[in-house]
Amino acid sequence: MWEYSEKVKDYFFNPKNSGVLEGADGVGDVGAISCGDALRLMIKVDPETQIITDARFQTFGCGSAIASSSALTELIIGKTIEEAMKISNQDIADFLGGLPPEKMHCSVMGYEALQAAVANYRGEEWVDDHEEGALICKCFGIDEGMIERTVRSNGLTSVDEITNYTKAGGGCSTCAEGIEGVLERVNAEMVAEGLLAAEKAFVPGVVPRKVKEKKVVRTDAAAKAPLTTLQKIKIIEQTLEEIRPSLQRDGGDCELVDVEGNRVIVKLTGACVGCHLSSATIEGVQARLVEAVGVPLIVIPAAPVH
């Protein structure tokens, strides 16, 4: 059973703006019945102000596809076309309080339908360059198409490299076998196409084993003395500063709100909010802090304000 947010459920059970919009100025069709989801977005546009005055949808798809479609109409009604075009699929997911990783493509479909509907309104043709495949890494929502593109354009030949470029495999690492499968296939294709030397291609089963670095056990007296609260907060602050750049690269951020005993309260902002990965992010932050401070800590996200 999927864990849908209350908002997804609400927008699925009581969808707003479903049905045909008579006399629509722009219509965008994306998806196909064979793929299991398809969406038609219909918009009415005021020619003077370029404001989207009405929008309706028809969707063939799962619960989150229907909820994403409905959310999209709510997001764009009343906006100018220019404003609406800035809406990303992440905005749709955020509006719904997040989507499970396997369902992020539903929000992508909404994003694409909007592009298609606006193109249709403007009398242009919208060409889709989007291609997806099976979801390989659940922790980071990376699908097969994404891995394939990255491997091809960067000539990657190892799982570690893929993790460095896409993050796939960098969380729980249970997807390693899946990543290896894609890598093996794509490398073989690249060799056949003359894009890669055969001896460089990834061969399954001969992955060099990583030698685990031994943890340095600190034995000096200073390390053993319990930290004062102030010292603890300082270390936490310092460590968070080190982590933030990598979150910011993904459009997110994490700020320290408070420390109560061993509870560290943080605020996730930007792309991290409502992102299904936020729990993975929190876990990562927690692991880093525990390591730095040297005592058990629990990282708790401050309640998001919506």
Partner: peptide
């Protein structure tokens, strides 16, 4: 709610991909 239902007899649904 399905775009295919009313148009099941004519294939009007015309996705760009």
């Amino acid at each position: 709610m399905s775009p295919f239902w009313r148009e099941r007899d004519n294939q009007a649904f015309n996705p760009t991909y």
